[in-house]
Nucleic acid binder design. Structure first.
Lengths: 227, 227
DNA sequence: TAGGATTTGTGCGTATGTATT
DNA sequence: TAATACATACGCACAAATCCT
């Protein structure tokens, strides 16, 4: 009786849901769908070869996560954020970053350290050959790799959700030249290097505080750019 | 042109969704539906006079919030939690409680202070005339009243969600006599009194630290009762 | 092993709400 | 102001998955 583990989230329907959800979430967070964009249930359903029903389920989940907003008779829109709302989330993200290093930190495995080194190499490459979309993907990979070092599952989920809520707004500022792209590449490269040093000696709290500092400064630079 | 504010979450469909969502969430958190209970989409839809479609939307939201879990061909169940999972959430809730007093605390208005005094009176009444369900509602009202003193919207949402995830598990221990009900009533009464003192002099951080201490101790008592 | 009963998931036509002409 | 177009929300019938006999 090799019945599937009922505790895991398996099953064809759930797998399809997860795939659609992650794909749309990435498109939103990589600015394929910029804030304010209107999405069509029908068009999306046709693109992925499903009916509107399962697609609506995915869109409803993204709405619960704060990435979309649907209004009957009007449409489904990618959410935007005011500078005030964004500041609240950033203040909270700073505290949660610090928490990640204090509550249940896990020293990175050799494989994980290699992963960070690869991220560092990708960051260096971007300085010479800029690529906005590759940069968006890179900072996402870096954030998720850091998050994997936290052994508190609810904290991971919450931090991830807040990241997806805010990074696309910050990236919008970058793409709209509110921020200087070349400068941001270099700052990120430095952040990865500094955190890598802390990780290599196993000082997770130091890594967390460096991350916290960079979250704070990235918001400050965006604020100064828009003022 | 008194068109409805498009920024607010209005509309008949959304109102019905919110009403169904809150009703089911309360039933889960007040233990009308204990952990492990199987819920039927059809039965619930008939009870509230809607079709399965909007009811499924509500159930999907509750699943995203970690209160339900659906499996095709099997059913929809109220989630339970192991002591380990519960400990992770409690550790996080302790930190977030402290954060509430530090990040964006708001001094309570006179009306809010009156609300806390009424909660204190309800707590005192429960000591003489025990009522498990009234107690469950009371600690929920108290938690939400404290949460309203935090001016950081994302922190409010996250704390509320984690509260709804854990309180029903703790209440299950109480109802199963793992915890001593009379003792818990008295401890809660004392907590409300102590926090009220802090609130009356406007020391929000002190109130937050008292709350944090009680979150910690309530989990410790539950751990000791189940060991 | 097979088959039927029951459950959630899906597809599609229709109702309802909104904006524009 | 009314009508038209088009969006999401809803209801129902059916498919797919699971469990039990």
């Amino acid at each position: 009786m090799p019945s599937p583990d009922p505790n895991t989230n398996s099953g064809p329907a759930r797998d399809r849901f997860d795939a659609l959800h992650q794909e749309l979430r990435d498109r939103i967070c990589l600015l394929d769908y910029a804030p304010g964009t209107r999405l069509s249930e029908t068009v999306l359903a046709e693109e992925f070869g499903v009916s509107r029903t399962p697609m609506r389920r995915v869109l409803a989940r993204l709405e619960a996560e704060g990435l979309l907003h649907s209004v009957q008779g009007v449409g489904t829109f990618v959410t935007d954020a005011t500078i005030d709302e964004l500041e609240q989330v950033y203040r909270l993200r700073m505290e949660l970053a610090e928490l990640s290093g204090r509550l249940a930190p896990m020293r990175p495995t050799p494989d994980q350290l290699d992963g960070f080194r690869q991220i560092s190499n990708r960051a260096k490459a971007l300085i010479d050959t800029p690529d906005p979309r590759a940069f968006a993907r890179l900072i996402m990979d870096f954030f998720l790799a850091l998050l994997a070092l936290t052994d508190n599952a609810p904290l991971r989920e919450i931090s991830e959700r807040l990241y997806f809520q805010t990074t696309r707004i910050w990236l919008t500022s970058l793409f709209d030249s509110v921020l200087d792209a070349q400068r941001e590449y270099e700052i990120f490269n430095r952040e990865v290097e500094d955190i890598l040093v802390a990780l290599e000696i196993g000082d997770m709290q130091a890594a967390a505080h460096i991350q916290r500092a960079h979250i704070s400064m990235s918001f400050t630079r965006m604020q100064q750019g828009t003022s």
